[in-house]
Amino acid sequence: MKFVRLLAVGIIATSSISGCTTATAPIKTVQSPTVESVSSSPIATAPLSKTLSGTFVSQAVPTSGEAIITQTPDSLTLELKDFSTSPGDDGDELHLTASTGAMTKNADGYNVVNEPTIYMLEKLKSITGTQSYNLSYMIDFFPEAARSITIYNNTTGEAFGSANLLEK
């Protein structure tokens, strides 16, 4: 109980010292500390890195290769390995997108990703070869929500190919 009272006094004192600003930070609820018993079993810790990967499947044009996402506590990288897709028409802009939906077959038998939550990541560097993209700015999004990577033609609105992501 003393801890909670001291915490409240500390928050009020800090608010008074820092003065008024136009933006205020949300107040987080702090729970009282709990005492846990010590056991001889090892403590489980979160993995230092996580890898998701998937193989591209053609959609509008022949697309192949592997998408590999590697996350560490401080970085997030997408690698396209042995990648190949078609160039599209002159002036077409090809982009990498991530979706919270997985690629499935629709009623007509076409491979589609029917998910309204799609994130435009980066402009595709090349239509062939192994290439790497630093996605550290998306570290809070990956890997829990990402289920697929798509090569998207921004000009025509077509998906050239997608890869469903699975944890390695």
Rank of each mutant, 00 (worst) to 15 (best):
G54M: 04
T55H: 10
T55I: 13
T55P: 08
F56T: 02
V57Y: 01
S58K: 05
S58Q: 04
A60W: 02
V61F: 08
T63W: 01
T63L: 00
T63A: 02
E66R: 15
E66Q: 15
I68G: 02
I69F: 15
T70G: 05
T72F: 10
D74C: 05
D74N: 14
S75D: 11
S75W: 08
L76D: 03
T77L: 10
T77V: 15
K81I: 07
D82C: 04
F83Y: 09
S84D: 11
S84G: 05
S84A: 12
S86E: 14
D90S: 13
D90V: 10
G91I: 00
G91Y: 06
E93R: 14
L94G: 00
L94T: 00
H95I: 15
L96N: 04
T97L: 14
G101E: 08
G101S: 10
A102Y: 13
M103H: 05
K105A: 05
A107E: 13
D108T: 11
Y110D: 14
N111R: 11
N114L: 12
N114G: 11
E115G: 08
T117F: 14
I118F: 11
I118M: 14
Y119T: 14
Y119M: 12
Y119W: 12
M120R: 13
L121H: 02
E122L: 08
